[in-house]
Design a protein around this nucleic acid. Structure first.
Lengths: 211, 211
DNA sequence: CCCTCTATGTGATTTAATTCACTTTAATAA
DNA sequence: TTATTAAAGTGAATTAAATCACATAGAGGG
């Protein structure tokens, strides 16, 4: 396959595949067909094959995919064959819960710094040992700790300004939990985790499906 | 316009529009064109007009949209002209942070019940006054509190079983924070808030854009 | 060594979503 | 009252994504 544009949705599905594959591996399964994996992930088998085909040929015709190999390949594709240092900006309810939450650590993401603007919090230590820095020290600490990804867990009103500071500090990956659309230059990649939108979507579906 | 299938993405955008509109209203703006709103939301103006056209004609040609009216109309479309009772299942780091978090309450969502499986937590009160029930009492409490939406904030391994219990209890809207694909019958609507996928997506983009 | 079987890899097709570009309509001013 | 203007509404065109369906190739048995 040549150099087609890769749909974002395909990238997201790779994460889902990897989860299913790791579960299968734990159960001792060695090989799986696109059909069975598709069933487990709730997608179309051709979709899996096409998603993988964007990046190479990882299967064995007539047999399927060797799970161990495929996990390694997908991790390499996604850039999960290394660690990523994360900074949390906003250590309120949500921010501190996310730091304590185990799911970040699973795949090589490491919380390496935390920031807030509340004078009462600055200098305090989080349960995991991180010191809370003032947001004004962002650029300095980002350099010191080699931060790759910023997680915004501030109120919506602060999100854009925090994003600006992250970009100035050279952070090109942002995970935004604030319910706000933030504008960033081309070089920076933003993902929004916006559960208010999801809730509204549920409300819409409940309203319309006559429940 | 007749009865076209409405893209899910259009529904999600309505939430984004409403946010921008409420901000504009606070600033005292009365009327806005699709072009200016589009700029603010980072989308194409025709997209806004088409999204709204799925549901009716809300603008004034040559003028724009009256903000107050449009907010009311979109709220009605999404089913936000009422309150929705929410149950939190899993009162760990994330669950309790979400309950304390203000964004749920903004648009008529009310936490009306909380559940866990840890015996140490059952019977305790959360800061907002909610008593933590055992998950086995789900069906009973859902009836008593008239719960419409369940939020799953358990480990991935428990997500499917919790979803099953919610459905048995008659809850047809689920917001799933666990990193797991859950299977539900047609009648039930699930939205996933999966920040591990989003993080992987960021890792992919950082890896490929040579940073 | 060849034949069969099975599941991948992929060009072609279908389906869906987005954007364009034009038509319509309301407001305003002459 | 009529001309002008601005922006909504919308059919058509475009672009993108998902699915189908078949050609292909490796594995294993005879």
């Amino acid at each position: 396959m040549k150099f087609p544009k890769i749909p974002m949705a395909a990238i997201n599905r790779l994460s889902i595949y990897i989860r299913a594959l790791e579960e299968l591996e734990e159960q001792g399964t060695k090989v799986i067909s696109s059909e069975r994996l598709a069933k487990q992930c709730g997608v179309n088998p051709a979709q899996i094959r096409k998603d993988l085909a964007y990046f190479g040929e990882f299967g064995v015709r007539g047999v399927g995919y060797r799970i161990e190999d495929l996990i390694r390949e997908i991790k390499e594709i996604l850039g999960l064959d290394r660690t990523w240092n994360i900074a949390m900006i906003g250590v309120g309810n949500l921010g501190s819960a996310l730091i304590r939450h185990g799911n970040f650590i699973k795949h090589g993401y490491v919380f390496a710094a935390a920031f807030d603007i509340d004078p009462h919090k600055i200098g305090k230590r989080l349960p995991n040992g991180l010191v809370i820095h003032h947001i004004d020290d962002l650029e300095k600490v980002v350099k010191e700790c080699d931060i790759h990804i910023g997680v915004i867990a501030t109120p919506a009103s602060a999100a854009q300004s925090v994003a600006n500071q992250l970009i100035i500090a050279g952070v090109n990956g942002i995970l935004n939990f604030a319910p706000a659309q933030i504008q960033v230059p081309e070089c920076c990649h933003v993902e929004n985790v916006d559960f208010t939108i999801k809730l509204d979507s549920i409300a819409y579906h409940l309203s319309t499906s006559g429940t």
